[in-house]
């Protein structure tokens, strides 16, 4: 049996109670909206890329479960100050961890704080909760689309 404590670690409760970088930026250079149609969760990620292509500021807003809120919160802490290619490498590393897959590239960054979300790989129904913020930030960074869904 999967231990619930592997999924719901104290750090996740902490970020769920007091999400970091919560609320939207007034003048973002990039913004995207993400939805998980399975559960109705929605979140918006807004960010400012400086002239060197570095994420100067990054915030999120939305309503979601503890997993998706904590994931978004830790993500904003992790990606702030990184370049777009660096953020992309974090996306790949996080996605591989959350889905339990082998990453397609090597030399990916260590996930450190994000490791608390590794428990979702034993809960297939919850993987999308953890990855929603990441799909949304990737969409914002690459202007792929104003809106992204987990489906």
């Amino acid at each position: 049996m999967n231990d619930l404590r592997d999924l719901y670690q104290e750090v996740i409760f902490d970020h769920n109670r007091s999400p970091r970088n919560f609320g939207l930026l007034e003048h973002p250079t990039h913004q995207a909206h993400g939805v998980n149609p399975l559960c109705g969760d929605e979140l918006t990620v807004s960010l400012v890329l400086d002239k060197d292509g570095v994420i100067e500021d990054l915030r999120f807003e939305g309503r979601g479960c503890a997993i998706s809120t904590a994931s978004a919160s830790i993500m904003t802490e992790t990606l702030k100050g990184l370049s777009v290619p660096e953020a992309d490498r974090y996306f790949d590393a996080f996605h591989a961890m959350a889905t339990g897959q082998t990453p397609s590239q090597t030399d990916l960054p260590a996930l450190t704080k994000l490791e608390v979300l590794s428990g979702v790989r034993d809960y297939p129904a919850r993987v999308k909760c953890a990855t929603l913020a990441w799909h949304t930030v990737r969409s914002a960074l690459h202007n792929a689309s104003a809106s992204v869904t987990t489906e």
Binding site: M1, N2, L4, G40, C65, A66, I67
Partner: peptide, 29 residues
């Protein structure tokens, strides 16, 4: 203060199966 999805997962951990989500009734939500 607890999202229904978290409720569903924790209930399932003790064998209680309920539905969580919008129940195919998004206007109701």
């Amino acid at each position: 203060g607890i999202h229904p999805h978290d409720v569903g997962t924790i209930l399932d951990s003790v064998g209680v199966a309920i539905r969580t989500g919008h129940h195919c009734a998004m206007p109701v939500m």
